[in-house]
Design a protein around this nucleic acid. Structure first.
Lengths: 114, 114
DNA sequence: CGCCAAGCGCAACCAGTGGTTGCGCGACAG
DNA sequence: CTGTCGCGCAACCACTGGTTGCGCTTGGCG
């Protein structure tokens, strides 16, 4: 029951290019496909596709301005994504901790027997 | 300078099936390709491929036991992965916070002018 | 010992996706 | 009015997640 409906959000930010895209949009506040592609090692069209994906999951939104299309991040949705990231991280961390303490308990038991 | 060399780790845990795989291995402590595939909606071979990927980035390791091959999570490496998850989350969170406070500052300035 | 089933690896194949190039079209500036 | 800038669409390529099918070793058992 660990992974559930957040799979689309995950796969959205799972792609490294899309993560960089979000980073750029956060850093500059806004950007179009062409301006963003200038800072990335991919073409404008690739960026466009990624922006479509990000738009579909609601991580960014676009506002047409004349002949260009400005994108900006949706803060609320990104916050949700961050929360899910942290939740998975926290869960694994908890398991690791539990395993570790269990191992130590066994170790102690062994020593006691000895 | 946000995303860097950790891309392989990210893409390793970016896949939902692989995340479930790690979950299962954490929950049961160990497992072979066949036993794991029993709990997943994919075939044994698919699981094998994922295990190869996870092994390549060091998130799991295998110990041959007779005719079967047992896999277990490498705790140290998973801890590293979790750390990277948290770090990206924290960075985005920080940016969001900064943007928010900036917006509020502008709002205050506007009101002052008024 | 001999045989069958369990577990694994390898290869071929298919669908989806990240990426490219090339084209055409609307909109803004000279 | 004309050029160019930014965008969208379509075709194509490579890689990857997934499947099926086959053949090999290895362990249990009559």
């Amino acid at each position: 029951m660990t992974t559930s409906v957040d799979d689309d959000l995950w796969s959205a930010i799972g792609d490294p290019t899309r993560r960089r895209l979000v980073d750029l949009l956060l850093a500059e506040g806004q950007g179009t496909a062409t301006t963003l592609s200038a800072h990335l090692p991919v073409t404008r069209q690739a960026v466009t596709k990624h922006l479509v994906v990000l738009d579909r999951v609601g991580l960014v939104r676009s506002t047409p301005a004349g002949r260009e299309k400005r994108y900006h991040v949706d803060q609320a949705q990104l916050a949700r994504a961050v929360a899910q990231l942290n939740s998975v991280g926290a869960m694994w961390d908890a398991r690791l901790r539990r395993i570790k303490s269990l191992a130590e308990a066994i170790e102690r038991a062994k020593n006691a027997k000895k």
